[in-house]
Simulated scan of single mutants.
Amino acid sequence: MSRVAYVNGRYVRHAEAAVHIEDRGYQFADGVYEVCEIWNGRIVDARRHLDRLERSLSELSIRMPMGRAALEMILREVVRRNLVHDGLVYIQVTRGVARRDHVFPSADTPPALVVTARSARPEVAEKAAEAGVGVISVPENRWDRVDIKTVGLLPNVLAKQKAKESGAKEAWFIDRDGFVTEGGSTNAWIVTKDNVLVTRPADHGILKGITRQVVLDMVEKKGLAFEERPFTLEEAKEAKEAFITAASTLVMPVVSLDGKPVGNGHPGEMSRDLRAGFHEMAESEPV
């Protein structure tokens, strides 16, 4: 079956889906996006993702392309038309199509909306989680508003490519003071030798991850020892365990950092436990 995409008011074959060459997302990376997990035929944490979408748009003075209820209907329809039982649904909103000019186009320019969905194989992700993944470190070189989930991801792309070339799954950005900010597409966590879970505060230095928030909810429910503070690369290398979080990875154990094992070089107990309980804590709605 051919995949289907929603593009500016129309459901079209994915292979034929296109936007105008003067879409400001293409010209200036002038847009934002969200990605929701589809799990067992349900959209996971849609409310929180759409809350963050609205915030990102507001920070860039882009209006919502339509009412929230209509957007939710489109998400479900794209998932249904693509027969996605487990996978991801992607939303992208840009400032729209206008003559190329750095300043904003006229206020009546409609925002552009693209929604796509694709299937994934849960068993592949589970196999990766059983083995754990590698991470490398790279210097932080992004703008200071990474709390906005924009499509301007070139530093992330370069970091992720470097990770791939190094045989790793992810790259952690390291700021000028030696602290880990976050990954190229994930939030970063460590567990100290005293079993204290640590992650950086969700200020302007990192994206306020939706999966991150679900993990924080689990931490509170379980009464785990937790500190929301920056941690250094060296502290991470000495940690008992580490993991990354995102809608596309859930809780994914990290077993090596810059080629050296983290802890005993195997997925840690806390990482495995948080991954196992994730969907019990997350919100989900039938497609």
Rank of each mutant, 00 (worst) to 15 (best):
M218Y: 09
R200A: 14
W189T: 05
E220Q: 05
E220G: 12
W189V: 08
H204F: 09
Q213G: 09
D203F: 08
E220S: 15
H204R: 15
L197W: 08
T199G: 10
D194R: 12
I210P: 10
W189L: 04
V219G: 11
R200K: 14
N195T: 01
V198E: 02
T192L: 04
V215K: 10
A188S: 06
A202D: 13
R200Q: 03
L216H: 06
A202I: 09
R212M: 10
I206V: 09
V214S: 09
L207K: 00
V196S: 03
D194G: 11
I206L: 01
D194V: 01
R200W: 10
L216C: 02
E220K: 14
I190A: 02
D217M: 13
G209Q: 06
K208F: 11
L216E: 10
V215P: 01
V191W: 06
M218D: 07
T199D: 04
K208Y: 02
V196Q: 07
I190C: 00
I190Y: 07
D217C: 09
H204Q: 14
K193F: 00
I190F: 01
V214L: 01
V196F: 07
T199H: 02
V196K: 05
D194Q: 15
L197T: 00
L207E: 01
D194K: 04
V191P: 04
D217L: 10
R212W: 06
V196D: 06
W189I: 06
R200H: 15
V196G: 08
T192R: 05
D194P: 00
W189P: 03
R200N: 08
G209E: 13
K193M: 02
R212D: 03
A202H: 02
N195P: 08
A202Y: 01
T199V: 07
G209S: 14
G209L: 14
T211R: 11
G205N: 09
Q213D: 15
Q213V: 11
A188T: 00
V191E: 07
R200Y: 12
L197V: 14
D203K: 06
T192A: 14
V196I: 12
I190W: 01
M218A: 05
I190N: 08
V215A: 12
T199Y: 08
G209A: 14
E220H: 15
L207V: 13
D203H: 12
K193I: 05
M218E: 12
N195E: 13
I206S: 01
D217F: 10
W189F: 07
V215R: 10
D194C: 11
T199N: 04
T192C: 13
